[in-house]
């Protein structure tokens, strides 16, 4: 908005105000494009699929501290759920059954998303869940894993590497297959 010229300028030169103007448009444009470029490379829907699983700590509703790093040497199945989530109910018995079956070889962790203690406990007791579960304070773990909604399940091998994820309620056969894949990795 600033292309008035000092009268002494010859018509063929670029005025300093014109330069300032073009420069600021370019500056804003380049910043925007940089943000978009970053956004395209790292969209929120892009969950970590391979490489080291993001580490986290949480406290179960019973007050026990849990750290992902403590389970090195054992595969871990991390399940994000919530008591207000209807489709979580479909997979909860399946998860618990798998946990009872693979208890000695595989660790299961339940991470409650935006859930309150009373509701979460009631829900887990309803399904008689025996693996550890706790709240995700401030949704930090949820954000670190780029989860898009509950339920979602992540599979981490004995070396702490991610082996993919499952969106939505998981079936018994799919869960079994995933666990077999995890068990195939020997540290």
């Amino acid at each position: 908005m600033n292309e008035a010229l000092p009268p002494e300028n010859t018509p063929e030169s670029r005025s300093s105000q014109g330069k300032l103007m073009v420069g600021s448009i370019a500056f804003v444009g380049i910043l925007l494009v940089a943000v978009f470029y970053w956004g395209v490379l790292n969209p929120p829907t892009k969950r970590p699929e391979s490489g080291m699983a993001p580490l986290f700590e949480l406290q179960t509703y019973d007050g026990d501290p849990i750290r992902l790093i403590d389970y090195r040497g054992k595969p871990v199945v991390v399940n994000f759920w919530a008591s207000w989530c209807l489709s979580c109910r479909d997979e909860q018995p399946i998860l618990e059954a798998a946990w009872r079956k693979y208890k000695d070889q595989v660790m299961f962790l339940g991470i409650a998303y935006l859930d309150q203690e009373a509701n979460a406990r009631a829900y887990m007791e309803e399904f008689d869940v025996t693996y550890p579960y706790g709240p995700d304070m401030g949704s930090r773990i949820y954000t670190a894993y780029h989860v898009q909604g509950v339920p979602e399940t992540f599979f981490i091998d004995a070396e702490g590497k991610l082996h993919g994820f499952h969106v939505g309620p998981i079936s018994a056969s799919a869960l079994d297959e995933r666990i077999q894949q995890l068990l195939a990795v020997v540290p």
Binding site: E3, A4, L5, P11, G18, V22, A26, G29
Partner: peptide, 18 residues
């Protein structure tokens, strides 16, 4: 499109005086 437009604008800047 942004790069192209900025280039054109820069080229024509001398002729775009108030």
């Amino acid at each position: 499109s942004f790069a192209l437009f900025m280039y054109l604008l820069w080229q024509r800047l001398p002729q775009l005086q108030s």
